[in-house]
Amino acid sequence: MPTGVALRDVREQLFDAAERILLRDGPSALTSRAVTIEAGCAKGVLHRHFADFDAFLAELVLDRADRVSGQAAALRDSAGTGTVVGNLAEALTELFGSVAVAIVALVTFRDEVRARLRERWPVGVPVLTEAGTMIASYLAAERDLGRIAADAEIDVLAPTLIGAGHLLFADRKGAPPEAEAVEKVVTTVLAGALR
Rank of each mutant, 00 (worst) to 15 (best):
M1I: 04
M1C: 01
G4K: 02
V5G: 06
R8Q: 10
V10Y: 02
V10T: 14
L14H: 04
L14S: 04
I21P: 07
L23P: 07
R24Y: 03
R24W: 03
R24K: 10
D25W: 01
S28C: 05
A29M: 03
T31D: 03
T31E: 03
A34I: 05
A34E: 06
V35W: 04
T36S: 12
A39L: 04
G40K: 06
G40E: 05
A42K: 10
A42E: 13
G44L: 00
L46H: 03
L46V: 04
R48P: 02
R48I: 04
H49V: 07
A55I: 06
L57Q: 12
L57A: 08
A58T: 11
E59H: 11
L62W: 07
A65V: 05
G70N: 00
Q71E: 10
Q71K: 11
Q71M: 12
A72E: 03
A73R: 14
A73K: 12
L75Q: 00
R76W: 13
R76I: 14
R76P: 05
T81F: 08
G82A: 12
G82P: 06
G82E: 01
T83L: 08
V85I: 15
V85M: 11
L88K: 07
A89L: 00
A89Q: 00
L92S: 00
E94W: 05
E94I: 08
F96H: 14
V99Y: 04
V101M: 03
V101P: 05
V104M: 06
V104Y: 08
V104N: 07
L106P: 11
T108K: 05
F109Y: 15
D111V: 13
R114C: 11
A115M: 09
R116L: 14
R118K: 12
E119H: 07
E119S: 06
R120C: 07
V127H: 09
L128G: 00
T129C: 03
E130A: 14
G132L: 01
T133Q: 10
T133G: 15
T133V: 14
M134F: 13
M134R: 13
M134E: 05
L139V: 01
A141V: 01
A141R: 14
D144K: 13
D144V: 01
G146C: 06
R147F: 12
I154V: 15
D155R: 10
D155L: 11
V156Y: 12
L157H: 10
P159K: 02
G163A: 12
G163I: 04
G163N: 10
G165K: 08
H166Q: 14
L167C: 13
L168A: 06
A170S: 15
D171N: 15
R172T: 13
K173D: 13
K173V: 12
G174C: 10
A175G: 09
P177D: 12
A179E: 15
E180L: 09
V182Y: 02
E183Q: 12
E183K: 15
V185C: 07
T187M: 00
T187F: 01
T188W: 02
A191T: 09
A191M: 09
L194T: 09
L194K: 10
R195I: 04
R195C: 09
